[in-house]
Simulated scan of single mutants.
Amino acid sequence: MRRKVRVGLMIAGVVFTAVVLAAGVAATLAGRRFHARYETEKAALLQQARSGAPPAGAGIAAESLPPPVRRYLQVTRAGDKPLPRFAIVQQRGGLRTAADKPWMPFEAEQVYSLEPPGFLWFARAKVAPGVHMLARDKFVGLRGNMLITLGGLITLADGTGPQMDQGAALRFWGEALAFPELVRSPSLHWEAMNETQARVRIEQGELKLEAVIDYNEQGLPIAMHAQRYRDVNGTGVLTAWTGYSREWRELDGRLFPTQWESVWHLPEGDFPAVRMEILHLQTG
């Protein structure tokens, strides 16, 4: 009888080990497929950026820009520089889904096409020991899409639609204005406010957005304030939001923020949702 029990336990152990190994192999393959999909989208975005019309440095006359925006061009000496076609940044940081949830550390890569405007973001976040969330955010062709999976196996979110387009566009412009050559884009319509703030209207096809940009004493943009859609139990709710750009240093031969933060301003208080450090910048 005892021998039968031991044999049964051995068989159960073998089956359990086989299931665990199979699950591990499936997760590895799914993760590779997810990353391969991102690499395909990245190649297409870079090809679009490289093969498009040469980015024009001209657009809005520098003299017509509000005082803090003109000063930004002056301190970065970007007034006569051509706009880069693309940029690739390496990041690390933390994200969370609610104020009472723990921070999940992540590593990420973000690719920008500056003309036409677009980005891709691939992140790998640690949910638990041995468990990772794979995310791909994008804004391409004026359309946004946030795809989130558990290890590439289980889809947790696959958001599309006008509200996603609006949020992705605000993310693009909130980050891409770190490239001062872009402030003269014909898609931007600036309005003077004071010496440290300027209002910008962003018009791209059907997308029409508005935001306020804060500049620090050195003349560098440090925050974008806007109304952005936030997911609340599956419903998009317009919510006060700020994208912060901090710790400007020299990267790839240019001044660039090395800290980014995304913060929702809720009735119960501020909710920082994403914090990231810029580790490397490549432009071309």
Rank of each mutant, 00 (worst) to 15 (best):
M1K: 08
M1Y: 12
G8W: 09
G8V: 05
I11V: 15
V14I: 15
T17N: 13
V19M: 15
A22P: 01
A22L: 15
G24K: 02
V25R: 09
A27K: 09
L29A: 12
A30T: 07
R33W: 10
H35S: 08
A36K: 13
E39G: 04
K42V: 13
A43T: 15
L45I: 15
Q47F: 07
Q48V: 14
P55E: 03
A56I: 04
A56T: 14
G57N: 09
G59A: 05
I60Y: 00
A61I: 02
A61L: 14
E63F: 00
Y72N: 02
Q74F: 05
R77V: 12
D80N: 11
Q90R: 12
M104K: 03
E109W: 00
L114G: 00
L114F: 08
K126H: 07
K126C: 02
P129W: 15
H132F: 14
M133P: 05
A135E: 11
R136S: 07
D137Q: 13
K138L: 14
F139H: 07
R143H: 13
M146D: 08
G151L: 05
L153M: 09
I154R: 10
I154F: 11
T160R: 14
Q163H: 13
M164A: 13
Q166E: 13
A168E: 10
A169V: 10
E175G: 10
A176V: 04
A176S: 12
A176F: 06
L182V: 15
R184Q: 06
S185F: 00
Q197R: 13
A198R: 03
I202Y: 02
I202H: 05
Q204K: 10
A211Y: 03
V212I: 11
Y215S: 02
Q218K: 13
Q218R: 12
Q227Y: 04
Q227H: 08
N233W: 11
G234A: 07
W241K: 04
W241G: 00
T242K: 14
G243T: 09
G243E: 07
Y244V: 03
Y244H: 10
P257T: 08
Q259A: 15
W264S: 03
W264D: 06
L281I: 08
L281Q: 13
G284Y: 02
